[in-house]
């Protein structure tokens, strides 16, 4: 059972809790989350997870979208390096995430708000610990409030779907 962290009484949160969007790969980390459930391991109710087939599918736009929609942090979780169901998807994610974190840092978003982690389908405990640690990190950093902070500096940064995804619109 994940233990709570007592250093989390950051007053900046007021009466709300951190919100973390998680992108979990279908094969390893989503199943690790399932295992955490079937084993009744508790973790903070800060995670809102979205299933994708592979972390290689992670479009950096998704992360920016989540932050701009009000998430305080984003965690992307996949299979351990070398154990990707699709061989190397997680390596691609690793590269994209490194670039993304750097870009976000330039916009004033602390790199700790966007994390990449691994958990195999058998690692329910590691999954819960990862979520707890992520929650602790975000709690310490305080709320993001993208609209009031980041968007002020770079108002057009998040490529919103309507503008960015023209071909799909035509198609539909």
């Amino acid at each position: 059972m994940a233990k709570r962290d007592y250093s989390l009484d950051n007053p900046a949160w007021g009466d709300r809790r951190p919100v973390i969007v998680g992108f979990l790969c279908n094969w390893c980390s989503y199943r690790a989350a399932d295992l955490a459930g079937t084993s009744r391991m508790g973790y903070p109710a800060t995670l809102r997870d979205i299933r994708i087939m592979c972390t290689g599918r992670l479009d950096p736009t998704f992360v920016i979208k989540a932050l701009s929609e009000g998430a305080d942090g984003v965690i992307v979780m996949g299979c351990h390096p070398g154990q990707c169901h699709y061989d190397v998807g997680n390596f691609k994610a690793m590269r994209r995430m490194a670039l993304l974190r750097r870009t976000l840092a330039q916009l004033g978003v602390h790199p700790d708000r966007v994390q990449l982690a691994w958990a195999s389908a058998a690692q329910g405990t590691l999954f819960t610990e990862t979520i707890l640690n992520m929650t602790n990190a975000i709690a310490r950093l305080g709320p993001l409030e993208w609209r009031d902070t980041v968007a002020d500096i770079a108002p057009s940064t998040p490529p919103l779907p309507d503008e960015a995804h023209e071909p799909e619109v035509i198609h539909g």
Binding site: V21, R48, D49, I50, I52, D59, K65, A66, P161, E168
Partner: peptide, 14 residues
């Protein structure tokens, strides 16, 4: 797992 479906899901969970 289209772009639109994931973007919509992000908006949805938030």
């Amino acid at each position: 797992f289209t772009f639109d479906s994931i973007m919509a899901q992000i908006e949805g969970v938030l």
